[in-house]
Design a protein around this nucleic acid. Structure first.
Lengths: 388, 388
DNA sequence: ATGATTTTGTACGCGCCAAGAACTTAACAG
DNA sequence: CTGTTAAGTTCTTGGCGCGTACAAAATCAT
């Protein structure tokens, strides 16, 4: 039934435990010691020695003597091998792109970045940058893109006019092994793996920009749905709007929450260029006490809370994180959000509402999430087996 | 990380493969042969012989000679052991209860049933029936209950006036190992395991009765949420109603879909006694061409479709099954449901909408699902290990 | 300083497991 | 009756993690 691992011979056991070990090293906040890892995984010191020995020979792990800590014989630290695999992570935004690198442990190093012309030519730019920085150590590239990617292939970014851009075409040719996903989902994954949603069983994350994108997080994994286009929570009619949305539907939640909703209050068209700055100004004016701007922010926060309550009824999250404009809304209108959320919650849930938190990974959430999915491919038993 | 199995020694491997084998036998449509099971699991004939031998000694499996099928030496069929473990499944409804039994393979046999007085005294009745029928073979009892069960403990059934009934109190004392869950979720699980949603990665199931309950199904498992109260999709404001719902929120989807919505169209109060029959009458009149009843059914179907579209945007299911009134609505108004659903779908999804299907497990969905969760406890490595 | 204590690393044997090869058994086909 | 096919059985083999025993390297107490 659910997720039975393909694991049935004793040889599979070895690589399975090695994957567990590498995952533990990757996920740890601070470098793990060999003895500490053995305790963490519940294996003997001798077994740990064997596992680490092979991983070191495969250039997946590097041991250096650890400083003595209290009594007892000093152990060693488990670090990424200097010739070990690295993953690249890229984030393609409205008009900029970023390329970064990480190795085991997850620390990100920015390699390159630039602007782009809002056409799929950015994939060529990214490929060139990747090739410039790639070494033999590059194992996988993860890319975060600001739009839904149906069946890992069909990319839609309405505000860039990208309608059904064929990702497979743009990512064919001289690319390293590549995985792509939606930015909001990856930002949520980053929160679940490295941010405010760590060790949360069921959670939701929403990135609020011009509109709302999000993801359901279960046991540290972001849900993708049947066609990889789950998470368009912003396109549910949760707040009773009667407008028609760019997505083709009437009444979307995103019409009442996000920068577009702020702009519309001031008679501005949802614009993706100057719009962002204008949105920031409205926010600043609200913060300075401007009544009209304040009411716009109020409405935004109330609509946000109302939708969160509705979604909490359906999905029962333990916590909800917000990024982008959501961070500002929490800062300025936490009470209003929580009150609106409570009004949308079924009565029996109100005593124990989901925690609503600002995302802690921050601006680089999508990049961080792209790094996670890229490194996930390395931490698979099959990948490790091939390497040993 | 997600669902790493606790499996690290070669001894764990044996029981892990035995669990896989038993699961295969349980899930198979027709009795598995020993040789067929070996092929299915990708293990050798010798290994299969060893696994089956131990399971037979533990009275978990029973082998009988299989009839020869074509050339080659005949093999044996893997059947539940006559002294093997059985699970009980119970379904507590508005005013009736049912108790059934199943063994490996999943075939249900009804043991007992009765009416109850709409108070938690039904748990005493059920316990007595369980004790009457229990033998040493009883390993676990699964109970489906028609209301949300927060933290596996606090039961709320508003239309029975059960507000925060303490399940732990009612299920303490002389009960076998017992698992409980919400009926709509269990009906969905039954569809995912034995019905129209078999081998579907991401799916939704909704049971439409007086209102709507449902569940998200991922990889054959029903999602529970952080407090075991996920799935109240009926209490999201998806169709713009302005009424106040019994749940304490304004505008719930359930106000426009389900028998209550039908009744309200005819000025009747949402009633749980005569209401069901009245609802059936309205449906029958609509089927006979009564215009007023027809419009009520139209509205119900349209609101249903609208909500399904919204949820499909958020969760991207491959298929959606409906039970209860939903089966009738599909039969009478499939086109209307699908059209309304399409209107709620983001434009880029309309070319490949989720399949909307009538549930095939039928009326006994909750009971069937309760049987699944009860037997799931038996098919765990820990349980098997303790038995061998 | 020096020996006791604590923690870790290392070596070796054990029990267990699944795989594979070789052989046997039991059906069918002609 | 003989050849073919598929499955059961037996035995060997390579591998794995565990437990025990012992060695090594640090700190602590005196």
């Amino acid at each position: 039934m659910p997720g039975m691992p393909q694991l049935q011979t004793s040889a599979d056991l070895r690589v399975h435990n090695q994957a567990r070990l590498l995952r533990a090293v990757h996920d740890a906040d601070e470098p793990l010691t060999r003895a500490g890892a053995a305790r963490l995984l519940g294996i003997g010191r001798n077994t740990a020695a064997a596992l680490v020995g092979e991983l070191q020979a495969a250039e997946l792990l590097h041991e250096i003597p650890a400083e003595a800590a209290g009594r007892g014989r000093p152990t060693s630290l488990l670090l990424p091998h200097p010739h070990g695999p690295v993953a690249f992570a890229a984030d393609i935004r409205e008009d900029t792109w970023t390329l970064a690198q990480l190795e085991l442990g997850g620390e990100l190093t920015t390699l390159d970045s630039g602007e782009h012309d809002r056409t799929p030519a950015v994939f060529g730019t990214l490929r060139a940058a990747t090739r410039r920085h790639a070494t033999g150590r590059l194992a996988c590239l993860g890319i975060a893109i600001a739009g839904p990617i149906r069946d890992q292939r069909h990319l839609h970014i309405s505000h860039l006019g990208w309608d059904d851009v064929d990702l497979r075409a743009h990512l064919s040719g001289d690319w390293p092994p590549t995985v792509v996903d939606n930015d909001a989902r990856l930002a949520g994954l980053a929160e679940a793996r490295r941010g405010a949603l760590r060790s949360t069983g069921t959670a939701l994350h929403f990135h609020i920009d011009f509109d709302i994108g999000g993801t359901l997080l279960l046991g540290g994994d972001a849900q993708r749905g049947a066609h990889n286009v789950a998470g368009e929570f912003g396109h549910m009619p949760l707040t009773g709007s009667d407008l028609r949305c760019m997505c083709g539907v009437r009444g979307c939640w995103s019409l009442d929450v996000g920068t577009n909703a702020l702009l519309r209050r001031f008679g501005k068209e949802p614009g993706y260029g100057a719009g962002r700055q204008l949105g920031q100004e409205i926010l600043a004016r609200a913060e300075d006490g401007d009544a009209e701007a304040g009411r716009a922010v109020d409405d935004n926060a109330a609509a946000l809370g109302r939708g969160l309550g509705a979604l909490a009824n359906a999905l029962d999250p333990e916590a909800i994180t917000l990024s982008g404009l959501g961070v500002d809304l929490i800062r300025l209108r936490r009470d209003l959000i929580e009150q609106s959320c409570a009004e949308g919650l079924m009565a029996f849930r109100r005593a124990d509402p989901p925690r609503i938190l600002a995302a802690t990974v921050g601006e680089i959430g999508p990049l961080r999430g792209a790094a996670e999915i890229a490194f996930d491919t390395i931490l698979q038993p099959e990948w490790i087996r091939a390497r040993i």
